[in-house]
Design a protein around this nucleic acid. Sequence first.
DNA 1: TCACAGTGACTATGCGCTCAGTCACCTTCA
DNA 2: TGAAGGTGACTGAGCGCATAGTCACTGTGA
Lengths: 218, 218
Amino acid sequence: MAPRQAHRRARVAGAAIDEPSTELWGPEFAEVARRLLSSAVLCFARNGFHATTTRDVTAGVGLSPGALYVHFSTKEDVLFAVVRVGHERALAELGDQGSGEGAAEEVADLVRRFVAWHARHHTVARICQYELAGLEPDHVECVRELRQQINQVFRRAVARGVDAGVFDVADVDRAARAIISLGVDLVRWYRLDGPDSPDALAAEYAELALRMLGTRPV
Amino acid sequence: MAPRQAHRRARVAGAAIDEPSTELWGPEFAEVARRLLSSAVLCFARNGFHATTTRDVTAGVGLSPGALYVHFSTKEDVLFAVVRVGHERALAELGDQGSGEGAAEEVADLVRRFVAWHARHHTVARICQYELAGLEPDHVECVRELRQQINQVFRRAVARGVDAGVFDVADVDRAARAIISLGVDLVRWYRLDGPDSPDALAAEYAELALRMLGTRPV
DNA sequence: TCACAGTGACTATGCGCTCAGTCACCTTCA
DNA sequence: TGAAGGTGACTGAGCGCATAGTCACTGTGA
């Protein structure tokens, strides 16, 4: 038999020039669990969930294979923790809505936060988008609910602008979805060492979003 | 030990209510190879490349396990065929460019074709986007080149409009990328049995693209 | 009779998860 | 103060199963 995965990339997490995913895991996880999660993020992003072994993850933090199961019940449990927290943080980043500002400024604000978060955390965000197939059905359902909430935030903001006559769109749902697409798709190509800083990209995309909405002065 | 992948979805390709991926594979593949590819598309889309077994693929067309290796040298070879052909077809769909029409109409045309293709072939397109991690480095490189060509088509069309003063964009590359993002991201959520037909969505997105480009009459 | 598509039992190996054992550290109490 | 007993994070060899790929064989059509 030919080597099963001869083309696999380097297995173990190198220096994370890339992203401080450590900061994402709140106090719900113990210190070692958080380091395991950060290692898992790098492994999953590099090789995908199924091609990552539990040994890759533990080796990434200098532990032996069994150590994973002190903190997580299964490998899938690790993936779910990553994906769940990723979605929760993205949702939280959108902040408390309904502040007094105008609809256009509100949408621009949402897009800026959403895009900047996805750019800054593109590695985790990529796993959130690409590795759903590795989750159990119950966990997929949980993620779907979180996404629904994110969609609703954008949808409401767009609808508000349409009601106020600030936006001119054919269909609120489609417009909201297109805006979200801009933010989500950047996890496919974004690199922190590329030409665009998260904030610059965020500002640019906020502008594009307002254009798509046909914004006009009140 | 707990069952390794207890949460796996149904393994074998059911009736393809979904997509005539059969039409994609040209005469470069024999009849049986084409059916294997179509089965692989359904399996990969449902479970992901790594979670799909060679038996899933062959069972999907009623063949025994060894039959795969009559037509393909490895499982990865099957994935590569799917991804390569998917990208080639998407590129071909953009058609012969540089027709005499105006830049705005050219961009609208490109977006319509690109979006309609991705909607119609969303299953294959999803594999093209989500399963690159399963490819050997050489094959990834080949795909990257095809993508580069697709990017260039959009970039050139946008640049042409900017030169002609028809578009008003801050940065040609970012604008082109945003347009492509709209098309690509729909593979994440699009369903053929949803409310939007490929052509309706294509028309809508062409409109959004022109808005993002700040189109104004010559 | 030959070429070859297809078969299916088989091989080799990778990998998720287990579990008896170790060790650093803490608590208790004489 | 320090011995005794307890705790739990971590170790790492190893089990059992899944699965990519092989090969000697079979059936078929030209």
